[in-house]
Amino acid sequence: MSTAPTRESSSAVVLEAITKHTQAGNPSSFLAMNTGNELFTVPDADGVVVYRQAGRHLVQFGGPFAGPDSYERLLTAFQEHAQERELRLVAVQLQRADAEIYARLGWTVNQIGASWAVGLPDFTLRGTRFMQLRNKISRAFRNGLQVREADAQDVRDALAVIDTAWLADKGEHVRPLEFLVGQTGGSAQRHRRLFVGSIDGTPVGYISYSPVYGPQAGWMHDLSRRLPGNSPGLMEAINSTAVEAFRAEGAQWLHFGFTPFTGLDAANELPGHSAAFTWLMHFLWEHGEDLYPARTQLAYKEKWGPDLTLPEYIAFRGQASPVSFAHVFRACNAF
């Protein structure tokens, strides 16, 4: 990075960039605010590159959050930064507008998955389509669930208990994911919304929502965790409560975030993409549940009848590489 700002000033730089430069419409852009991210800037360029280093790879989150006059200059400088240090580059969660620029600049670009969103103004759970979902939500409330919006600081200890039990339930060697999933706490928490479900006064689950900027502005259903073994429909009931709050405030979209290996379509691929990597994505959709539970994640999102599917992309500086792809998961703390 060209300077070494404090954490507070870094957060301010990123927040300005993701709120000002929304032309790519990345619904996950608020993840750029996560603690642990690194920033790259150049003098007189209006924007920032967000990334993490994993081994000899720099894993970039999204495209540069930059103005049109600075976008390619910033990306080129970041490429030179990596080359001077003999590091490999891979970028993940590019939007279509980003992907087209990267492909034109010689990167190998492939669809890696999709994100999903529901339009809120006309959203309703009425009708046979949502009967099963309504029944699960009703059951959770009948079992004593109460949902409220909470200040994360006020329920910090309860969130820690839920997080610990949730992770233990996933298996002995499972690690908490980072980078491409949200956080609670920290200086960015004041911009998020937190809805907590409790039974008999004890918090048993929560969903954190992050702001979404750009053409489909609204909120993103981000980090969600629950105590194992509680009432069916618990998370659906929490989300339905948040949906009604957002609708009452006039929010336009609820995004469900990025899910790898989903929404794959040959029509989404760009010239120069890797046929082998396309095959790998389809293979992981069919057989990759141990790597990432894409089918389970998509099933939850489809319950809500999404109106919008946005393809998301991965880009390799050079040929598509399984090693570089693995370093995306390494940056996410998956292994």
Rank of each mutant, 00 (worst) to 15 (best):
L125R: 14
I112L: 14
R85A: 12
N110M: 04
F130Q: 07
F78S: 13
L180W: 05
S115M: 01
D157H: 13
R156D: 11
Q189A: 15
V109S: 02
P121R: 08
L133E: 10
Q93L: 10
I101E: 02
R126P: 00
Q183D: 08
A82F: 03
G127E: 07
L75Q: 14
I101C: 10
I162N: 02
V147R: 00
H173R: 11
R96P: 03
E172N: 06
V161F: 05
L167Q: 13
E149F: 10
L145W: 03
E84F: 09
N143G: 12
L87I: 02
D122P: 00
V181E: 08
G182D: 03
A99M: 06
G106D: 05
Q111H: 09
R148E: 15
N110K: 02
P121Q: 06
A140L: 07
T184V: 09
F179W: 11
A97C: 04
N143M: 08
Y102T: 05
V181M: 06
R148P: 07
W107I: 08
A140T: 01
A160V: 12
L177K: 06
E172A: 12
P176A: 09
G113D: 05
V92L: 06
G127N: 05
E100H: 04
G185S: 07
T128Y: 09
R148A: 15
A168C: 03
A168P: 05
G119D: 13
S115W: 05
D98L: 04
G113C: 06
V147P: 10
R85G: 07
N135M: 07
G106Y: 10
Q189P: 04
A117G: 14
V109N: 01
T124H: 13
G182I: 01
Y102I: 06
D154C: 01
N143V: 00
R139T: 08
L89W: 00
T124A: 14
T128W: 10
A77R: 07
V174S: 10
F78I: 09
I162H: 06
R126M: 02
T76D: 14
L180V: 11
W166Q: 01
R139L: 11
V155K: 08
K170H: 04
V155C: 10
G113F: 07
A188S: 14
R104D: 15
A140Y: 05
N143R: 12
Q95W: 00
S187D: 10
S138F: 00
A82G: 15
T164E: 15
V109C: 03
A77V: 06
V147H: 03
T108N: 08
L105P: 01
D157P: 05
L145V: 07
L120M: 07
Q95H: 04
S138K: 13
G127V: 04
N135W: 01
V92I: 14
L145K: 08
N143I: 00
D163K: 09
N135K: 12
R129V: 04
H81F: 15
K136E: 05
S187V: 06
L75D: 12
V92S: 10
A91K: 02
Q95A: 07
Q83R: 14
P176M: 05
P176R: 14
S115E: 03
R175E: 11
D169G: 04
L145M: 08
L75H: 12
W166I: 00
Q111D: 11
Y102F: 15
M131Y: 13
Q153I: 05
A160E: 14
A152D: 13
A114F: 04
D154L: 05
D163N: 13
D163C: 04
G185V: 03
